[in-house]
Amino acid sequence: MEILLAIAIMALGAVVLGAALGFASVKFKVEGDPLVDKIEAILPQTQCGQCGYPGCKPYAEAIAKGECDINRCPPGGTEGVQRLADLLGREVKPLDAEEKPKAVAVIDENTCIGCTLCIQACPVDAIVGAAKQMHTIIAQQCTGCELCLPPCPVECISMQPIGENIENWKWKHPILAIKPVPPAVHAKEAA
C-alpha cells in the first residue's frame, strides 16, 4: 500500500513539475537561438560556402543542431576549430581542409571587360564598378572568399596573400620563438 502511495506521490510530482516546465518553456521562450549566435560570433563571416553551407549562419545552425563537424571552415583555421571546441565542449579535430594564408582579391584592371558578373557574386559588396566600366575591389572590405573568381569570363581576378606588415605584426609566443644558437656559443659551452 505504502509503495503505491509513494509511487502516486512521485507521479503527481512529476506531472506538476513537467507542467511547470512546459509552461515556463512557452512563457519564457528566448527569441532566436543564443547558441547559434555564439557559434556565429566565432565564424569568420567570410560567407564563402567552403563549409558546404550557403553561408556562415547556416553552418552555425547546423553545428548547433549537431548535424555536422566543427572542422569544416577553412577561413576560420585551426584556431577557429579550437574556439568552437572550447565553446561546445567538443573534441578538437584537425581542419578538414588545407589552411590558406589570408588573401584579398585583385582585379587586373586592364583585362576587366566590365561584365558585372563578379559584383553579383561578391557576398559583401566589396567590388565597385558599373556595366562596361572597369571594376575594382575595395581591399579593406574583401574577405577573401574567392566567390568572384569563377564567374569572371576573362579570368582577370586573382588572390593576393596579405603579407605581414608593421600594422598587423604580432609578438610571437616566447617559448615558440626559439632561435638557433650560433656555433660560437656551442664551442664556448663545450669548453
Partner: peptide
C-alpha cells in the same frame, strides 16, 4: 571588427 563588418555588409546585400 572585420567579421562584424563583413556580416553587416552580407546581411545588407
Amino acid at each position: 571588427n572585420a567579421a562584424d563588418e563583413a556580416k553587416a555588409r552580407y546581411e545588407f546585400k
